[in-house]
Computed example of a mutant assay.
Amino acid sequence: MQTPAPGTLRILHLSDTHLTGDGALHQGTVDTTAALEALLDHLGAVDGVGLVVVSGDVSEDGSPESYATVRRLVGGWAARRGAAFVAVPGNHDQRAGFRRVLFDGHVLGEGGQELLHTMEHHDPSVPVRGRSLVAGRRVVTVDTSVPGAGYGEVGAAALEHLRTALAEPAPHGSVVVLHHPPLPAPTSLHDALKLRNPGELAAVLRDSDVRVVLAGHYHHHFAGSLAGVPVLVAPGVANDADVTGPYDEETALVGTGALVVDVAEDGLLWSTPVRVPRPDADQRALHLDAETSARIAADSGPA
């Protein structure tokens, strides 16, 4: 891959690692720790990464051990390259376990240096939120998870956090990281689990200095825009959603990927999807028929 131009912030965008504390296979098919290790090894030759992002569903079980694994693997990869490391919760994460290990999600700062945090107790009803400055870009994390549910929402507290963070322009603009994309869903199940209030998010982003919104959740690479701001959805580390099948079914294939996102000083943006070659790729990792998808949607979607 080409070396980023001077002044460009290169972001390694990971999502949906679905790590488990006890090593249990995700959906009974995928060793997500091994998948993450293989991905990071494959990305070892990518030069110039200044920021590593995990945009939610960091953990499958919410255990402190699973968050310790992502801090060791992803944080270690970032630190060795002098890169910052930021994560945000998704619908599978548990805020208590997340905060215990990853604090407000801003783990490493510019140059790969550990950021200092005070250990404060927060009720799980309080969204995880944070911001930091990396190479002149303000990085703002927004917690779209809803405890006990699979769908996403940018609540009043999260909206105010984002609005306050963006009140003054940053030297080279801002990057927003969240889990549920403010984009149309590819399947009926994900439609039930989508972000419920993209319009309210759009109102905060409009006319701001945000250069890009980085999201996950859909386990497949998507690109779109909201309020004129590019939105990039990373492939899943745990598996790859098959978005070409029937809308009312859900199928995931064995596959692991990421995005390499370059943000230039003038706001020019481009992204490169990266996929790990593997002999068992494109085998089904998950398939839910229409009836099962509808049941999960009814259980996990809004009342």
Rank of each mutant, 00 (worst) to 15 (best):
M1V: 14
Q2S: 14
T3I: 13
G7Q: 10
R10Y: 10
H13V: 07
S15Y: 08
T17Q: 07
T20I: 02
G21E: 00
G21R: 04
G21D: 02
L25N: 00
L25A: 03
L25W: 03
Q27M: 12
Q27C: 13
V30N: 01
A34I: 06
A38G: 03
A38Q: 14
H42S: 13
A45L: 12
D47L: 12
V49N: 01
V54H: 03
V58W: 09
G62H: 09
P64D: 11
P64Q: 12
Y67R: 10
G75P: 12
R80W: 07
F85G: 01
F85L: 05
F85D: 00
V86S: 05
V88K: 01
V88M: 02
G90S: 05
D93C: 04
D93A: 05
R99L: 02
R100I: 00
R100K: 12
L102P: 03
F103R: 15
L108N: 01
L115C: 02
L115A: 03
M119T: 13
E120P: 00
H122D: 05
V128S: 01
R129F: 05
G130V: 04
V134G: 09
R138E: 12
D143F: 08
S145H: 08
V146A: 11
G148V: 11
G150T: 09
G150D: 10
G152H: 05
E153Y: 13
G155T: 07
G155E: 06
A156W: 09
L162G: 02
E168C: 05
E168S: 15
A170I: 04
V177E: 02
L178H: 05
P182G: 02
P182E: 02
P182V: 01
L183W: 00
A185E: 00
A185Q: 00
A185G: 01
A192M: 05
L193D: 02
R196W: 02
D209E: 12
V210H: 02
V213Y: 03
F222M: 06
G224T: 00
V229G: 07
V229C: 09
V229H: 08
P230M: 11
V231P: 03
A234Y: 13
V237H: 12
N239E: 13
D240C: 10
D240S: 14
Y247E: 06
V254N: 07
A258L: 11
V261G: 09
D262R: 12
E265L: 13
G267E: 07
S271N: 12
R275P: 03
P277M: 09
A281N: 15
A285L: 03
L286W: 04
D289L: 04
D289M: 04
E291K: 06
T292Y: 04
A303G: 11
A303Y: 04
